[in-house]
Design a protein around this nucleic acid. Sequence first.
DNA 1: ATTGGCACTCGCGGCAATCGAGTGCCAACG
DNA 2: CGTTGGCACTCGATTGCCGCGAGTGCCAAT
Lengths: 335, 335
Amino acid sequence: MSERRRESVLRAIVEGYVSTSEPVGSKALAQHHDLGVSPATIRNEMAALEQEGLIAQPHTSAGRIPTDKGYRYFVDMLAATAVQDSHKRAISTFLSDAVDLNDVVERSVRLLSQLTRQVAVAQYPSLRESPVRRVELVRMTSDRALVVVVSADARVEQATIGVPGAVTEEEFERFARELNEAASGLTPEALDKALSGWTQRHTTQPWLRDVASSVVSASRGGTIERVVFSGTGNLTRQGSDLKADAVTSILDALEEQVVLLRLLHEMASEGGVSVRIGRETGQAALAGTAIVAAGYGTVTSSALLGALGPMRMDYPGTMAAVRAVARYLSKVVET
Amino acid sequence: MSERRRESVLRAIVEGYVSTSEPVGSKALAQHHDLGVSPATIRNEMAALEQEGLIAQPHTSAGRIPTDKGYRYFVDMLAATAVQDSHKRAISTFLSDAVDLNDVVERSVRLLSQLTRQVAVAQYPSLRESPVRRVELVRMTSDRALVVVVSADARVEQATIGVPGAVTEEEFERFARELNEAASGLTPEALDKALSGWTQRHTTQPWLRDVASSVVSASRGGTIERVVFSGTGNLTRQGSDLKADAVTSILDALEEQVVLLRLLHEMASEGGVSVRIGRETGQAALAGTAIVAAGYGTVTSSALLGALGPMRMDYPGTMAAVRAVARYLSKVVET
DNA sequence: ATTGGCACTCGCGGCAATCGAGTGCCAACG
DNA sequence: CGTTGGCACTCGATTGCCGCGAGTGCCAAT
């Protein structure tokens, strides 16, 4: 009972089940995957694998299918698979003519969902440390103004704040100029100090505090972390194991975002391409599904990109696609 | 055979089928909906309704279900239904503390999906005629700049353009100032003229044309029209008639956006709450589904909001909810 | 350790019988 | 003439049964 062979059997079972979506038995396995052993031997190995909890049989008289643990073992013994050439080409043509960050992320997620035939999710870069490039204060009505913050990496954040009607146009313009001078080029930490100094000098104008705080929050993290997704149709597309109520809870979880964000954060800390299978997600709503994710971006602005689908998933292919898109995305975001 | 009664029968069939999702027969109908007639009479009416193509029977020995046309007739004879008090309260509490337009639209769509238990869709206001409030030109790197346009209704649009490296900081700043002066307060038409004049005066700087065109396109329509949606989980939630492949094509259509946008545009022209049932949508992907939509916003910035679900839908309730949210949304957007 | 053989399990597809909801039609009634 | 009760008929859904075959586990032989 060489360890070697047992792994081959597991691999064959996973591959067989993934491609046919039907439990695979000892006979078919011995025939097709030309490992020079008889069905009986394979049955022995299978029994052992089942003992270890790596495979299971749906009913007594059926073949075996991998369990969560089985998929996990399979993934762990996987060497990195090369990306298909067609995929490579798709990535560069699809992403080359994106116009801004929004567009890049949106295209990426759409592309990834097509390559993997799964639901693709992407978290927007959170831009923790992005310095402020410019701040604009625009008065919209007599009692409301818009704060527009342009960060060094071409992101534009906005917020609405209240302004006392008593503030004249000239005063307002002056404050706007001062603000711009005080804030330009500063990182969030420096910004915080500089602006608190600024508001201190104008204690008669309490609304400036709102302005300052919105600028600071825009520079650090910007808008609330957001997740976009694409390819939800793949969840119900023919060949998906997922039952209707499973799909429902996945869709709900996607829209909830909170659940997903927490999970992605956890995965982010692992580096490289990280995979969560079934229960490993820790989310009841995601039972029966697996997520493949990879970080993208630089140290200063990092986020995640991934694919979500039924546990019965082409892991090598999906991992390769996720890795490739993440890598390409990193390049684009960095420049 | 009073016209009156036949309509009652149709109404009863629709209501029955909507609530139970099972074909309704003459017997059950006579009993539950206390119209003082015998099953036999109802059968006669049913035969007539079937003749007119308003109802149909799935199999010979089953009750009747409404056809597209039947639902349409039902909807047309519907008087406006009052909104539930709980819904009213939900709307004001849910939308009251939204911070900006994005937030308002996002909350609305989420809310509507909860109230109707359908997929809610919303188109962002397209702001056709919104004058420009301010234009900022920010140089990001030596050869790229960001154009930020703030429109009079507090929308911020952005675009990236290329700048020749030869342009100095001083020149750049001067152009930025000129642009701002030339563009402020102008409507798209005036803007177009003013900016073409401006670029004419600087024929040595062809990149200014890019700037001008992005400002103009930002002021009219702004970014590409976008549709957001929420509640996709409702498509597969228990009680939905939709079969898996129907759900797939709906999800695909939602992500496609183009299809949906065209449909919404058509519906926009009808005013009030407009309903499209089954084939009426004109989209093969939306067979078996119905859309209830209403416009929101003012004359200058209008867009649509709606609910999409299986044809077997609570039309009165959905229409009331859509109407209510659209009305509330109009109020918020207007101010 | 591997293998062939063998009895056993059990899901699935096909088939027949039954059931019952619902219909259409017709004759009778006010 | 519209309404109603009665009745024969249709046909999908359910149930029960049977045989098939894939797949297993175990055991004895190599």
